[in-house]
Amino acid sequence: MKYLLVLLFVGVLSCNQNPNKDEIVSVTDLSKVDFTDEQNVLLDVRTPEEFAQGYIPNAINVDVNSEGFDAEIKKLDKEKTYYVYCQAGTRSSKASSRLLRNGFKNIVNLKDGYSSYKK
C-alpha cells in the first residue's frame, strides 16, 4: 500500500511538471505582451490572403492548412513563446496542437482570434 501511494504521488508530480503548455489569452492580455522582446512571437496561422487583408502588428504568417506548415515551423525556435491566432480560434487550436507535438514549449492562443482583435 505504501508503494502504491508513492507511485501515485510521483505520477501526480510528473503530470504537474509538464513543460509544454497551451494557454488562452484575451485581446486585453495580448496587448500587454512585449513583442519587441525576441522571446515572444506572434504567429498568424491564417491564409496569406487573409493575412494581406489585415493582421496584428508584429505577426508572422504561417498558414496552418498549407502543405509546408510542418516544414516552416521546424525553422522556428522551440524555446520561444508563441502567441497563435487565426480568424476565430479553430485553426489556432489545430496549429497549437501541431506545435506542441513538434516539441514547442510555450504556446498561447488568442481567444476568438483576429475577429476579437478587430472588435
Rank of each mutant, 00 (worst) to 15 (best):
N102G: 08
N109Y: 01
N40G: 08
I56P: 05
D112R: 00
N20F: 15
G113N: 00
V33M: 07
Q87L: 07
V62W: 08
Y83N: 03
R46S: 02
T28H: 06
K32S: 08
T36R: 12
A71N: 10
F35C: 05
Q17D: 09
K2Y: 06
I24V: 15
S93R: 06
T47P: 07
T81D: 07
A71K: 15
T36D: 14
E38G: 09
L110C: 08
I107V: 15
I107N: 03
S97G: 15
S96R: 00
Q53K: 13
V25C: 04
F9M: 14
K21Y: 14
T28K: 11
M1S: 12
E79T: 12
I60Y: 02
E38Q: 11
V45P: 05
C15W: 14
Y117K: 02
E38A: 12
Y55W: 06
S66L: 01
V27Y: 03
G103E: 01
Q17Y: 13
L13C: 15
E49N: 10
Y83V: 00
S26T: 01
V108E: 01
R98G: 10
D63V: 01
Q17F: 14
Y85C: 09
P48G: 07
N20S: 14
G68M: 07
S96L: 03
K111D: 05
I60D: 07
S115Y: 03
D29Q: 04
V45D: 02
I107G: 04
V25P: 03
K2W: 03
M1C: 09
K21F: 12
D70E: 14
D22K: 10
S97I: 06
A71D: 10
E72D: 10
T90F: 04
N18F: 13
D112P: 07
K75Q: 10
I24M: 05
C86Q: 06
L110P: 06
L42P: 03
N106H: 13
Y114N: 02
L7S: 14
L43T: 06
L8I: 15
P19H: 11
G103N: 02
L100V: 15
V12M: 12
A59W: 00
L76G: 10
F51S: 03
S66I: 01
N109S: 09
R46Y: 06
L4M: 11
M1K: 12
K32Y: 04
K105R: 13
E23L: 15
Q17C: 12
S116M: 02
L43D: 08
Y83P: 00
T81Q: 13
A71W: 09
G11Y: 10
V108G: 01
K21L: 09
T81I: 08
E49Y: 05
C15T: 14
C15S: 15
S97T: 12
P19F: 12
V41Q: 06
Y83D: 06
S92C: 05
V62R: 10
V45Q: 05
F9Q: 09
E49M: 03
V27I: 05
D70L: 14
A95S: 09
Q53S: 09
A88C: 06
E67T: 12
V10H: 05
N18G: 03
P19T: 07
F9V: 15
L30R: 00
N40T: 06
N65T: 09
Y82V: 07
V33W: 09
E50F: 04
P19M: 10
